[in-house]
Simulated scan of single mutants.
Amino acid sequence: MHGLGNDFVVIDGRKTPLPPMTPAVARAIADRRTGIGCDQVIVLERDEVQAFRMRIFNSDGGEVEACGNASRAVALLHGQPVTIATSGGPIALEPEDGGARVDMGAPRFDWDAIPLAYPMDTATMPVGWETLEGPMAINVGNPHVIFFVADAEAVPLEELGPVIEHDPIFPERINVNVAHLAGPDHLKLRVWERGAGLTQACGTGACATAVAAIRRGLVQSPVRVTLPGGDLVIAWEPGGSILMSGPAAESFRGTFDWDDYS
C-alpha cells in the first residue's frame, strides 16, 4: 500500500499470529533489490485494549512510534471507523473515498516529550545547522523538528538531514522538516525521515509542520500541506487533537515465505 508515494508492506496478523518481527527481518523485507521493497514495514497484531495494534518498522529496521501515511492505508484496509493501538498511543481511523481521516491525538511540546537531551525552548530552539536555524520541535507520536525557510526546495536536505537526525541533542534521533509558505493556509514541505531518508510524503511530518505554522501565526487551520507525493489537509486547534485527511491506495497483494527473510 502507499500514501502519496510513501509505500508500505502491510503484514496482517490480526487473525493468525505471526512469527516475531525483528529489525533484521524488517530490513530484509524492505530491501528494494533483494526483498519486497518499501519505506516501512507495517505489522498488524491483536491488542488487548484496542481493536488491533499497528507496529511500524522503518527500512533500516528500527521500530518507530507513529506513521500518518500508514495509518491512512490501514484505515482503507480495515474499511470502517476504528481506534487502534500504536507505540505512540491510540489513534482513531475513519476511511473516506480514496483515503482516510486520522485523529493523530494531541501534539506534545515539552522538551522531555520530544525528547531532547536537555531542557530548552522547543518553540524556537536556540540551535542551528548551517543555514537552518531556530526550529520548532514537536512530538506527534514520533519526534519532529521543523524549519521554516524561504524555499524548501533550495535546502540540501539530503546532506543536512542525516546530520540533524543523528545530532546528540536528539537522543532518539529526529525527523527533519523544511517548509515554506506557498499561499494562504498552504505550506510546501520536504521531509528527511528518521531511519528512511528523503521521502515522497510523511504524514506525521505534515501534522507537525502544520501545527508549528499555526503556533507561529503563519497559517490558520485547516492547512493544506503539499509534499513531493501530493497534498494532505491538516486541522488543529490549540489544546485539541490533530486531524489529518488524505489519500491512500492498495498496490497489490501477495504472499511470501517468512524463512526467506529471517
Rank of each mutant, 00 (worst) to 15 (best):
L116H: 00
Y118L: 13
Y118A: 15
Y118N: 08
P119N: 13
M120E: 03
D121M: 12
T122W: 02
T122H: 04
T122V: 15
T122G: 03
T122I: 12
A123F: 05
T124H: 13
T124P: 07
M125V: 14
V127S: 00
V127G: 05
V127D: 10
G128V: 08
W129D: 03
W129I: 07
W129P: 00
E130Q: 14
E130C: 03
T131L: 08
T131A: 15
L132W: 07
E133T: 13
E133F: 09
E133L: 06
P135S: 05
P135L: 01
P135R: 00
M136S: 15
M136N: 07
M136V: 07
A137Y: 05
A137P: 11
A137V: 11
A137N: 12
N139S: 15
N139L: 05
V140R: 14
G141I: 04
N142G: 08
N142S: 08
P143A: 08
H144R: 13
V145A: 01
V145G: 07
V145E: 02
V145C: 12
F147K: 00
F147W: 01
F148S: 10
F148E: 04
V149A: 06
V149F: 00
A150V: 10
A150Q: 11
A150I: 09
D151I: 10
D151N: 14
D151M: 06
A152F: 00
A154D: 15
A154M: 06
V155R: 02
P156K: 12
P156F: 14
P156S: 11
L157C: 06
L157E: 07
L157S: 03
L157Y: 03
E158P: 02
E159W: 14
E159S: 05
L160G: 01
G161E: 09
P162L: 05
P162F: 02
P162T: 05
V163F: 07
V163S: 02
V163Y: 09
I164V: 14
E165G: 05
H166M: 08
H166I: 00
D167M: 04
I169G: 12
F170D: 09
P171K: 01
P171C: 11
P171N: 02
E172A: 15
E172K: 14
E172V: 13
R173A: 08
R173E: 08
R173P: 09
I174V: 14
V176R: 06
V176F: 06
V176K: 09
N177G: 02
N177D: 07
V178Y: 04
A179D: 12
A179H: 02
H180I: 01
H180W: 06
H180K: 04
H180A: 10
L181I: 11
L181T: 03
A182I: 06
A182V: 05
A182S: 08
A182L: 06
A182M: 08
G183M: 06
G183C: 07
P184Y: 12
P184E: 15
